[in-house]
């Protein structure tokens, strides 16, 4: 089910002294099965934009279409929309309010009409998927560490089996293994179940590794919408917008300047490793001599 934004603008507190033009004339089309990244400086409008996708925010002007239908049209069923387009919030506190974690995660599916008995298996599955330990299922959300809360909040959205999954900085505050595990799980949902994923992130490394299309927001506008390695080739412009490229991109550019014929498109560790090995062979580097034995 594609989502389309047509000339979407949004203003917080219009016609007051606190007026903020958070989105300016956004035009976008998100196709089925995409894995899209959104990056932008804090305050660039990322969270505001994605809340438009499941009708939590109504645009000040412009139209949002879901599967070709205007989601703010008369008689449009936004309840169904919200259960198909799942949004995991940036701050898990905004999402956790039940007595225990399991009940919290059951809340979404029960809201979709499941009984508690039917919801629980979905909830358990989702919690385990994000690496939440079974021994903590019955804890109060207040007794969790920061990263544990984040996991519970993501599970709450997964349990609703959305068709489109939007994650607002899902890995902020997660430990490195947790971050990789959750993103691997999400990538699998995308490739196996064909879910569309929209990932908002400040980690350029994660964006490079997982997404295939990258949207860059700057001061309420979309400034790039392209393949990640294309976007990262503009790293100097990105820095002016409060962003950066992955460490690997800087390394590859540095190596190229020093004359090593590496591929500047490589923006992940795996790609860089391959490209550097190839380049070292091409220049017959002494670093590969003595049979290339393991160190």
């Amino acid at each position: 089910m594609p989502i389309e934004c047509k000339d979407v603008s949004f203003t917080y507190a219009p016609a007051t002294a606190y007026e903020i033009h958070a989105l300016k004339n956004i035009n976008l089309r998100i196709e089925d099965h995409e894995f899209i990244g959104i990056i932008g400086h804090t305050g660039s409008g990322k969270s505001t934009l994605i809340q438009h996708f499941n009708a939590l925010i109504q645009p000040t002007s412009g139209t949002i279409l879901y599967n070709g239908e205007d989601i703010w049209g008369q008689n449009y069923n936004r309840r169904t929309l919200r259960s198909e387009v799942g949004l995991a919030f940036q701050y898990p506190e905004h999402q956790l309010f039940e007595n225990d974690v399991l009940s919290d995660v059951c809340f979404g599916p029960m809201n979709q009409g499941l009984t508690r008995e039917e919801a629980e298996p979905e909830a358990r599955k989702a919690l385990l998927q994000v690496g939440f330990k079974e021994k903590n299922f019955l804890k109060s959300p207040f007794e969790l560490s920061g990263g544990q809360k984040k996991r519970a909040a993501i599970a709450g959205v997964l349990a609703m089996n959305p068709k489109i999954l939007i994650l607002d900085e899902p890995t902020a505050g997660l430990d490195p293994r947790g971050r990789d595990n959750i993103l691997d799980q999400i990538a699998e949902l995308q490739s196996v179940r064909g879910i569309t994923i929209i990932l908002v992130s400040h980690s350029m490394e994660d964006i490079a590794k997982y997404t295939r299309r990258l949207i860059v927001m700057n001061q309420g506008e979309v400034v790039y919408d392209d393949a990640p390695h294309e976007v990262f080739s503009h790293y100097e412009e990105l820095e002016k917008m409060g962003l950066a490229a992955p460490q690997v991109t800087y390394l590859m550019n540095g190596l190229k300047k020093r004359g090593l014929p590496v591929d500047l498109k490589a923006d992940t560790v795996a790609e860089a490793s391959k490209s550097i090995l190839k380049a070292l062979r091409e220049v017959d580097s002494p670093l590969l001599k003595e049979g290339g034995s393991h160190v």
């Binding site: 490195p176 560790v269 393991h294």
Partner: peptide, 23 residues
Amino acid sequence: RLDVPQVTELAYELSQAGVKLPQ
């Protein structure tokens, strides 16, 4: 459950593949 910086990881992978690099 931790990691190393991306360049450290890359250097590690390259040395596993036989490139002579300092630790």
